[in-house]
Structures are given as structure tokens and as C-alpha cells.
Computed example of a mutant assay.
Amino acid sequence: MATASAHLPAVSAQSAVRTGAAVMSLAGLGFVGYAVIFFVRNFTDSFLELGIGSGEVSVGKAQIEQFSPSLYHYISHLHIAVSGFIAAAGLAVACLAWFGVRRGQMWALGTAVAVPVLGLAVALPAHYPWGFDTLGHLGLIYLDTLIFVVGAALAYYGLTRSRAET
């Protein structure tokens, strides 16, 4: 009896590593893209993060600024700072994947995985108690994380397979 894998084309370990690293790099750049959206919205009338509206926050930019200009500036500075850290993490992940994982460095894979895991482990839990877990707000991050996980799994498969073959 033939197995399902007998009908699938063989994927070389090196091909899996290169493809996985490329997908991880793309996802890292996706994090940078999300940071750009986050940054730009701070300077528009939207002000609040993507996917956060009147259902989650009962006031908008003008009302916050009218209520307390210093609070408005404080929130704005947080938006700018968070977008910078998201972009920096995304760039780090993309570079680690492209220049380290693609060359077969297991430490680069571990670090590239640890960076978004740490960021998401700290950031995501705060979204749920106050209803900021909307699909419009977290959907792009969930999608980008899924893409990243696929790439990381493929790269890990290739790296462990190539080590087992040597």
C-alpha cells in the first residue's frame, strides 16, 4: 500500500530552509507594514489603531484632545513609540531569517522566532479584557503570524532534516 508521501514531490532540506526563510522574511516585512499603518493612523483623523472604533473607544481624536491636550500628546507618543518597536522587531525578524536562517543557522531561527513570540506574549493578553480583540484590529497580525509560523516550521523542518542527513 502506497503512502500519501509517496505521491508528493520530495522537498530537499535546503529548499525547505530557503523557502521557509523567505516566508519568514516576508512575514517580518509584514510586521513592518503593520507598524507603518499604526504610525500613519496616529497623524490622521482616525488616530486610534486599525480596527478600533466607537464600539471599543467612546471618543475620538478631537474629543481626547479637547478633554486633555496632554493626554492626547501622551497617547500619540505611545502610538509612535509602539509603531517604532513593531517595525524594529519586524526588520530584525526579516534580517535574521534572510541572512541567518537561509544560511542554515539554527541560532538565527531561534532568535527570529523568539522576537515575535515575546512581543505577542506581552501585547496580546491586554487586548482581551477590554474588548480590543476585534478582527479588524488583530486580524492582520494574526494573518502575518500564521504566515510566519508556516515559514518557521518549514525552515525548522529543513534545518533538522539537513542535520540528520549529515
Rank of each mutant, 00 (worst) to 15 (best):
E65F: 11
I80Q: 11
H79R: 05
Y128D: 03
F39V: 04
A155I: 00
G60T: 01
L154F: 07
F85G: 13
T19N: 10
Y34T: 14
H77L: 14
A114K: 06
A62I: 00
E65Q: 14
M24A: 05
A21E: 03
T111K: 06
V122C: 03
T44I: 02
G20A: 08
L159H: 03
A21C: 07
A21L: 01
V115Y: 03
V101I: 10
D144K: 02
A62M: 11
Y128A: 11
A94W: 02
I37R: 13
F43G: 12
Y34K: 13
G90E: 00
L109F: 06
A164V: 08
L138I: 07
A81Q: 08
L50E: 10
V59S: 12
G30V: 05
V117G: 03
H127S: 08
S162C: 11
F67P: 07
Q105L: 13
A152H: 02
G131D: 08
H79F: 12
L26G: 07
V17G: 00
G119N: 05
H77T: 13
F132W: 02
V57Q: 01
T19F: 07
R41L: 09
V59E: 14
S46D: 11
S76A: 12
V11K: 11
M1V: 15
L154N: 04
T145L: 00
F47R: 00
S83W: 06
L124W: 08
F31H: 09
V36G: 06
V117F: 06
Y34D: 09
W98F: 15
A121F: 00
I86L: 12
T44E: 07
V59W: 12
Q14V: 11
A4K: 09
P9T: 04
L159D: 00
A35R: 00
L8K: 13
R163K: 15
S58M: 14
A81R: 04
S54P: 07
E56K: 06
A35G: 04
L138V: 05
S54A: 14
V101F: 09
I141K: 06
L146Y: 08
I86Y: 00
A126V: 15
R18W: 08
Y72D: 05
P9C: 11
V93P: 01
H73E: 15
S68A: 13
L135P: 05
R163G: 12
